[in-house]
Each structure stands twice: as structure tokens, then as C-alpha cells.
Amino acid sequence: MSEPQLQSDPPAGQQGLLPKIAIRNFSARFGQSQVLTGINLEVHACERLAIIGPASSGKTTLLRSLNRLNDLNATFAHDGEILLDGQDIYGDSMDVPTLRRRVGMVYAVPIPLPWSIYDNIAYGLRLAGIKGRSEISVRVESSLRNAVLWDEIKDRLRMPAMNLSGGQQQRLCMARVLALEPEVLVLDEPCSGLDPISTAKIEQALAELKDRYSVVLVTNNTKQAARASDRTAFFLMGELVEVGLTGQVFTAPRHERTGQYITGHFG
């Protein structure tokens, strides 16, 4: 296992700490098509990293590599390594279910399982081996509070999750992940199908959680990236073009393409 190196431009106050996630020279492909090439990127403890870029730039693949969800696709292959707290997640000693609990994921489309709200959240807890009813109830409530959903549905926990509105479903999906107390929260365009009010609630939840988790947020919405992140990475055609403090990337991008994308010239 190689020692992670210090990275070039960490945000203030993070200098010298081990990065939460270190992506080292990571490439990925599905069958013949190369999706990611030579990515080097770090995510620090308790920072919010936004990943922006046009469609098919490899953002989602990178995200799904972080919890090895790409493994479900048999044509997936990768090079390089991804370190979580210094441990290679693709290494033999990594227990994948545990990894997926540590790196919780919210998808672009809300996918509630066809059960009650309560069972949706309790499912992950039961998988993690938590059996006590009272503990599950406590964590269901706290996760729903963290996802800013509790007040709306606290009397209807036994209702089918499918009956919730789209925005509520997405917050339920977030609560489902938060209940597992992950170390990293990865969100794949979580607001792409939502109305502005639901989007605001999700952003509010993210803001309240920022002291506790590292957040990786893939988004198509540059304004959202600007609002809800500390640093921003810009991807294009499977490559990382630049990464820096969000303010700097948005006001003084180092690369021409980044500026063009942010100002809406393509993408």
C-alpha cells in the first residue's frame, strides 16, 4: 500500500491531513469504451466537492467507482487505485458491503424500494446487523430529520414510500443512506428531476451535514455547484480538466474550457 502524498492545493485548515479519499491515476472502461482516463483527485474530510462537466464526461462512473457499484456491470474494468483512509478499496482485503456503507450513495432518480418509508430506512440498518427495534427507530427518526423530511412524514412512517412526492422520495433516499452514518456521501445529480423547492431542501440538508461528512456532489447545475461546495472539479471527456476552490474555479478558471462550460457556451 503506497503512502498517500500531500496534495497540491488543499483548502485552508486541511493541510497535512490524510485525505479521506485519494484517487490515484484512476482509469475506467466498459468493454472497449474508455470512460475515465488517469484521474488524480482527492476528497478531504468534511469537505464538499462538486464535480461538474457536460454529459458523458465520466462523472457518474467516477462516483460509482467510489463504492464499487460499477462492479455490478461485468464489462467494467479499471486501472490505478482509489484509497479510502489510505486503504485501496479495490484491494483484496476490502469488504465491499462495508465499503458501500462507508461511502453512501444517492442516485439521480429517487428509487424507493416498494415498501413503507420506515422499512426503506430500516433495511440498510438491518443489513448492517442492527437488530434492536428501539435503536432502529431512533436512527430512522434522526436520519429523516437530517434529510429535512421528518416534519412532513412523521405520522406516516408506515405509508408506502412510493406514495411520496418526487422531492420527498429523494430526501428519503438520502435519509436511507444517512441512517448508515457513512463517512462519505456521494450524490449523483440528486436534484436533476426535482422542482426548485425540493432542490432547496436537499441543499439545506447538505449544508447542515457539512461538518460531519465528506460530500461528493455530481451536478449538471453549475449554480448548485457554486452554492453547495467548497471545491469544484471540472470533468471533460473522461479527464479531469481542473480542480480548485469553488470561488476560484468559478471566477478565475485556469482552463479556457472550464470558463466556457461555466458560462454556458457548451455542455
Partner: peptide, 22 residues
């Protein structure tokens, strides 16, 4: 839906747990 399996595995289920419980 395939996505149910994705979600379940994403929450830390093994494939077998996903199959039997979801």
C-alpha cells in the same frame, strides 16, 4: 426493476441478501 438491486447493494447488501430480501 434493476435499480432496486443497485440500491440494495449500494446500502451494503451482498448479492444474496439483495436477492432474498429485495
Amino acid at each position: 426493476p434493476r435499480s432496486f438491486s443497485d440500491v440494495s447493494m449500494g446500502l451494503g447488501a451482498t448479492r444474496w441478501q439483495t436477492v432474498t430480501r429485495v
